[in-house]
Design a protein around this nucleic acid. Structure first.
Lengths: 201, 201
DNA sequence: AATAAAATATACCGATTGGTATAATTTATG
DNA sequence: CATAAATTATACCAATCGGTATATTTTATT
């Protein structure tokens, strides 16, 4: 039914997603979007109701880019502990993977939307809950498989690990210094090894 | 010489500092500033060269608010380990102290300025370097006092501690959940106790 | 190839943006 | 208390903001 428009919609989202991610909602104007896409306002508003809907789609696209890469890295790993270490390794190369879209969309849009756009903030919160739940499930899987101590609180550790990663990514992006994320992943590796894993000796 | 204007300048900065912190640079308009201060554009531009200079002053004011509170909490503590624990306790009540100005200015302006305003980003970077150096000095003081292991890397730990705190504050602000910062400070307390301190037993 | 439908471009809208020249008003100084 | 200087208010500027009605072009259908 709508062949061309669907492709154009996707093209717009892909093209403007890094702009919203870098500049935020009010820092991104319609002229940014027309200039980047080569389209006119008429074309853009034929594909989206308003600027806010473009920002929603851009955020979701940026998150999907990252999530798909994580899924690819974890595709063949079936043990919880292995999934955790693979996830940590992904974040070591996170910057390389996301510098094209302007850094972590969760931090960028989380900060941008807070105090500004409740609908967008709620979307960020949902994504955080989802990603945190992935980590939580990996811990629980490890517990079911007998490789992670059964008495540790999976929710608490998932939240702490996620917060640590976000903090290190913020610092790496702000200071332009990859040692923050690399050192933090070393630290979390060690945390899992010493506090979560059951020592087999 | 300039009695009234200096007071007005301070009044403007104090009044608009939370607005810039919450809304960011492009999210804050001159009409926000005139409305909040009750002054006209003429008055504001009589005290500042342009909008960017107001944003600079606002960021520095917000940082000072936090730094002064930290200094007050650490005033009477002369041992490095004690200073570290007092700093961590400050961050447990950080949200309470900074919710009025709209959260952590380092995260807010760090994200806002990145990809947008290099001059402002450099100011954020300078503040981060300064605060990190404070933590580093506390660790070195502990080493000099014989309470912290001499072989640990003060710079590495200062960076990791700072990144962890920023991450937890971002999560607490974004998810409106204080458990992130509280749990993270528990974790860092434990980190200092188990990895940094020399056990006296 | 003709026609209907979908998609894009053009041209415009009122409102707001950051900023400024100038007039009116305070404030300090003699 | 008069006057000069500093400060604030008013009125305006061009440019840009997000958004839309309509005209034009492109695409799908017959």
């Amino acid at each position: 039914m709508k062949g061309k428009a669907a492709l154009t919609t996707d093209f717009i989202v892909e093209t403007v997603a890094p702009i919203f991610n870098k500049n935020g909602y009010y820092g991104t104007s319609l002229s940014h979007l027309t200039k980047a896409t080569g389209l006119t306002k008429g074309a853009i508003y034929g594909n989206f109701k308003n600027k806010e809907d473009i920002a929603f789609a851009a955020f979701e696209f940026n998150v999907d880019v990252v999530v798909e890469k994580i899924k690819a890295d974890l595709a063949d790993i079936t043990d919880g502990v292995g999934q955790l270490y693979a996830l940590f390794n992904f974040y070591r190369k996170y910057r390389m993977h996301t510098i094209a879209i302007g850094g972590c969309p969760i931090i960028n849009i989380g900060v941008d939307a807070n105090h500004q756009n409740d609908n967008l903030l709620h979307k960020v919160q949902e994504v955080i809950e989802r990603l945190q739940y992935y980590i939580q499930k990996m811990i629980v899987l490890g517990q079911d498989q007998g490789t992670i101590k059964s008495d540790i609180n999976a929710v608490t550790y998932a939240k702490r690990i996620f917060a640590s990663i976000e903090g290190a990514m913020f610092m790496t992006a702000t200071m332009n210094d990859e040692s923050y994320i690399n050192d933090m992943m070393d630290h979390i590796d060690n945390l899992v090894k010493t506090e979560l894993e059951i020592n087999s000796h």
